[in-house]
Amino acid sequence: MYLTSGAEATVYLKDGVIIKERVPKRYRLVELDERIRKERTRAEARLISEARRIGVPTPIIHDINGSTIKMEYIEGELIKNVMTPQLSERVGEIVGRLHSGGIIHGDLTTSNMILHNDKIYLIDFGLAFVSRIVESQGVDVHVLFQTFESTHKDHEKLIEAFCRGYRKTFLNADEIIKRVKEIEKRGRYA
């Protein structure tokens, strides 16, 4: 079953397993293209596993082959469809744990979170990277707040609840939240 096709990868479900394949880009030189797709696939798989080690639920990686990852299929509800302030607080806790561990997700949206067995799973680490810089963490949270605003009612309550959870698991939370407000004013990353 075909799930999504972004600018970078196609994702499909086969025999109960998720297969994510980074597609070749014709505009790039073949050897450069292959190097980048391989590097990114390895980095993505590594960060998915690393996130789980620091207490963030993520899919289990089954196999990496060139620019293809096979991983666990998480069945459940997209947070996008079931969002409440209670869940937002738990999202905050998870993102706090991720940032404490030095990982930036890079594409935090409520479509990249799945509620499964009463646990919130983070998926799609395609744009994830390692950083402990306030700006990177701030942009990560800012992107999430933007999806709150564009797809959820009562986004102020969701933001408030998120911050409560984020503070619980991340010592630097206040500094990041302050930065998020600055980033909003800049009007970038629209």
Binding site: G6, A7, L32
Partner: peptide, 18 residues
């Protein structure tokens, strides 16, 4: 050239998708 241009074309493509 190949490296620098590919970087910018990649981001341009993502902006298109976004």
């Amino acid at each position: 050239q190949e490296t620098a241009f590919a970087m910018m074309v990649e981001v341009t493509e993502r902006a298109l998708a976004h």
